[in-house]
Amino acid sequence: MITASNITHQHNGKPVLKDVSVQIPGGGITALVGPNGAGKSTLLSLIARLQPLQSGQVLVNGLDVQTTPARNMARTLAILPQTTEVTPRLTVAELVGFGRYPHHRGRPGPQDVAKVDEAIETFDLTDFRDRPLDSLSGGQRQRAFVAMVFAQDTEYVLLDEPLNNLDIAASRSLMQTLQGLTRDHGRTVVIVLHDINYACAYADTMITLTDGRLGPCGTPGDIVSDAMMQQVFRTDARILRVGDRVLVEA
């Protein structure tokens, strides 16, 4: 379980998060949703210790992210940041191999090689294995980065808007792979999503943020409603229910 308590954060004097306390359950996919500038990515990067906490505390499985040694943290929690720089000529297999770094510190063993092969297969990258990243399409490259984060073999995997720049086929296949990994491998995925429909379709838990404050949290079927769309996104989009599926009008 990830427990964030009393997180208040300012960026250049402007408040981004205001006293946010939230618990993210272990297992399944938890989606962070909210309008632009609501503080979703900031909350995720604070949980992942990409930025130092200004106030409050984050515990991941009881480990304080501020004080736990970086290497131990990297074996519990993995993060895929929103913008990733691409080192020229780095191949897919080399990139995915870096996911094992927290375990081997530069000297990969047979187990690390096996995990890398497994991640490459899971994310359907076998054909691109030895291709440099800068020769791949946006979707393929994003899959390679997600594969690296999964090769890290951590209980918690945090992804910041991984569907950016992906078309519908690539988005769906990525979300389905993530769903499979939470179900079959017991991973916990925390994901910032821009499109609430993807959150409704794939998330087990939804956490909403507006203007730096926590909104309704729960399963998408329970919390997504006309009133919630008005409160969180300030739009009058209608909700359609098809069977047990929730769809938000575009």
């Binding site: 990409l50 131990n72 074996r75 993060i79 720089e85 770094y101 530069g106 984060v149």
Partner: peptide
């Protein structure tokens, strides 16, 4: 090698 991947990924990998 890890630092080459940028600041955020380095943190993620425990550097």
């Amino acid at each position: 090698d890890v630092l080459m991947l940028g600041r955020n990924i380095s943190i993620g990998l425990g550097e």
